[in-house]
């Protein structure tokens, strides 16, 4: 059993910043490896940072819409959507045969995996009650053994990142990464405490949307290849 006490340190913000820096670093190295101009890479990273951050805030404001509750929070799916939109816009500005989009999509599991550690240590997004191996207790929260869903998400998305990165030459890697990420997210959302009596959470609805997009991209690529042949 893992016991987590109150930490007197802004751990959530620190790990979120580390995850964004790691994502930007990955994008920088990947684009550099693919011979993109240094100046364009820096402009892209600047825009990517702003889009991921403001995307997270905007999406959170939309799904938690209320006039009374005047709070601001970050949503992982919002950040992911922001990164995707940013890469598509930048691809239109500086055409690179999809390298920007590929780099952004490949970095998403890495950013998410590290960001989930922030949730684990700060005690949010926790799992369902569970008394087995590696159960976690937040002494400042519910104070009962819980399923370590955040840790499972970190491990799953890190594995996904390495698998996708080593297969980045595959022509369908963008749709495969989106599909696997959405499926993982969809399944792991059932182990969250907040979704105990919920049939489909908003995250799961967005996951279904992403699964449909990935299937569409896969068949579009296949159709284009058949037309070319």
């Amino acid at each position: 059993m893992i016991i987590i006490n109150k930490i007197n340190f802004p751990i959530y913000g620190t790990i979120i910043i580390v995850s964004i820096i790691m994502g930007l670093l990955f994008n920088y190295l990947f684009l550099k490896k693919n011979n993109i101009k240094e100046k364009n890479i820096l402009l892209y990273l600047f825009l990517l940072f702003i889009y991921s951050f403001l995307g997270g805030i905007l999406f959170n404001s939309i799904i938690n819409f209320s006039f009374e509750n005047y709070t601001i929070g970050l949503s992982s799916y919002g950040g992911a959507i922001g990164i995707c939109i940013c890469s598509i816009i930048f691809e239109k500005i500086d055409n690179s045969n999809g390298i920007y989009i590929k780099s952004a999509i490949l970095s998403l599991p890495l950013i998410y995996a590290i960001a989930k550690l922030a949730c684990f240590f700060s005690g949010c997004c926790f799992g369902v009650p569970y008394k087995g191996l590696f159960s976690v207790v937040y002494t400042e929260g519910l104070n009962i053994p819980l399923f370590p869903v955040q840790l499972i998400e970190t491990i799953a998305f890190l594995c996904l990142f390495f698998i996708c990165y080593y297969n980045n030459k595959n022509e369908n890697i963008i749709s495969i990464t989106i599909l696997l990420s959405a499926i993982f997210k969809f399944i792991l959302d059932y182990f969250r405490y907040s979704n105990i009596n919920v049939f489909l959470s908003i995250n799961q609805i967005v996951s279904i949307f992403f699964i449909m997009i990935s299937i569409y991209l896969f068949f579009k690529k296949r159709y284009n290849r058949n037309v070319c042949n």
Binding site: K39, N40, L43, L47, I50, Y51, L54, L58, I93
Partner: peptide
């Protein structure tokens, strides 16, 4: 909640577009 982030996002996107198209 909505207009400020959208305005900043579109402004910065436009700025990056100018930097690439008119260096």
């Amino acid at each position: 909640k909505y207009i400020t982030p959208l305005s900043i996002l579109s402004g910065l996107t436009l700025l990056v577009y100018i930097r690439i198209k008119y260096p």
